[in-house]
Amino acid sequence: MKPLLVVENLKVHFDTYDGVVKALDGVTFDVYEGETFGLVGETGCGKTVTVLSIMRLLPENSRIVSGRIMLRGENLLEKSEDEMAKLRGRKISMIFQDPLASLNPVFTVGEQITRVIMIHQQLSKEKARERAIEAFKLVALPEPEKILKTYPHELSGGMQQRVMIAMALSTDPDLLIADEPTSLLDVTIQAQILKLLQEIKSRKKLTILLITHNMGIVAEYCDRVGVMYAGTIVERGPVKQILKKPYHPYTKGLLAAIPKPESRKRRLHVIEGFIPDLINRPRGCSFHPRCPYAREVCREKEPVAEEVEPGRYVMCHLVEEVVVA
């Protein structure tokens, strides 16, 4: 399997009044064609910054300090704004967390999707309209012709998200980035939307980069996953393996924190401490202040990603012993 997207050592800083926020401190991962790659981590760990960097939609006070983002061998960070505009919505599409906020309230849904189609595919208005209806059918929206004439606020949350997905997929992109697409939806609708994405992926040749904070979603819908903490990927590999045998203490903590009704323990597992100050990052491993296994070397040196098993990478000093052993 060839990698479609390769992110190498991405470092992104933000200039703020309080100092330089080192949001991403060397993010490395790759996404293979046809798979669903999950990027999981708590709020503030840098998941959204990562995908905004891929799309080159970062706000003005940001600086990409180093790294490469390779899409089919081309470095996206070297492209001009015009070149990126041609790629966005055409080769890479993105859907956002809040579908109502992401749709323009004064245009009908139909006007918005046909405009996107017309921009990328030079079709006439009628042809674009047909394609729009096709796209709506793809996402299982009932009565597509009617929906074309509705305004975003007239639709339910689930339908709004389907519209966004339709817009994103109407141009047959290679990569779909989904930034927490279901976090604001009801649990039942969540499952519907995620299953829909899976179906579409199997029908068309689509690769999905799925951002979430929910390990359950990762377990259910992702092939491979990258666990993010404080701007780095601390563990990455196939989902089934990681779930069975997590290496990194943070991953272990995340999995242990999932409440299990059948467990006899009365207290929920907690990862002690808070996420670090990104302006004054701790020395050494960024997780060490909260790590129950922290040792002297963790306080001093930053760990590097080690391949502990084929395709499994972990950033932790403790596993070096495993590898060596």
């Binding site: 505009a85 966005r88 919505g89 055409r90 599409s93 992401s102 921009i119 817009m167």
Partner: peptide, 21 residues
């Protein structure tokens, strides 16, 4: 607004965003 960022993410060129959207 969020929908302007989303429009950019869908590849809308800047002048279309400014003068139409």
């Amino acid at each position: 607004e969020r929908y302007i960022v989303a429009a950019k993410a869908f590849g809308m060129p800047k002048n279309v965003i400014m003068f139409y959207y």
